[in-house]
């Protein structure tokens, strides 16, 4: 067992972890933040995406020990209380989430994209989300959602 001191969604925490554990495991099992999902466990699907010191990472590829001293933000830390983030609201309004299992990771990737590219084209959105797989939507409504989150043009 190891101990990891880090800040998760703005709260300082000391998380216990198996020496083999991944950041994904400690977030889900120790911090109780199950919004971050496991789809593949090998860095292919993006369902486990979180921010680690401001950078989008796939938490299934990060050993828990690497989170020592880090600032982590998960999907649970994206809305402000009950007020949804513009990206979350856009996913909700425009059909960006169907089964919802890819959604937390997809939203994290979209938020990361908009931080770097505040006014993306559809091509930017495609590239920005290329590391996140969705089997339900065929991506069209996800592109719509991200572009509309920017315009603030939710009907």
């Amino acid at each position: 067992m190891i101990k990891v001191n880090c800040s998760v969604n703005g709260q300082k925490q000391t998380l216990r972890a198996h020496s083999m554990a991944r950041l994904l495991d400690v977030l889900r099992e120790e911090a109780g933040l199950t919004g971050t999902k496991e789809g593949c466990g090998e860095g292919e699907c993006g369902a486990c995406s979180v921010f680690l010191n401001g950078e989008l990472v796939m938490s299934c590829l990060v050993p828990a020990s690497q989170a020592e001293g880090a600032e982590i933000r998960t999907i649970e830390g994206i809305a402000s209380g009950e007020a949804l983030h513009a990206v979350q609201q856009a996913f909700l309004t425009n059909g960006g989430a169907q089964c919802g299992i890819c959604t937390p990771g997809m939203i994290m990737a979209a938020v990361a994209l908009l931080k770097k590219t505040p006014n993306p084209t559809e091509a930017d959105v495609r590239v920005g989300l290329a590391g996140n797989l969705c089997r339900c939507t065929g991506y069209m409504k996800i592109f719509d959602s991200v572009l509309r989150a920017v315009q603030g043009a939710n009907p």
């Binding site: 933040l33 919004g35 496991e38 998960t74 059909g95 919802g100 937390p104």
Partner: peptide, 21 residues
Amino acid sequence: RAVERKEGRDKVVGRSKYIDD
């Protein structure tokens, strides 16, 4: 009409409980 997805809010904030959760 394109009404809001019934369980959509839980899905976009990461609150939905799937079996491994």
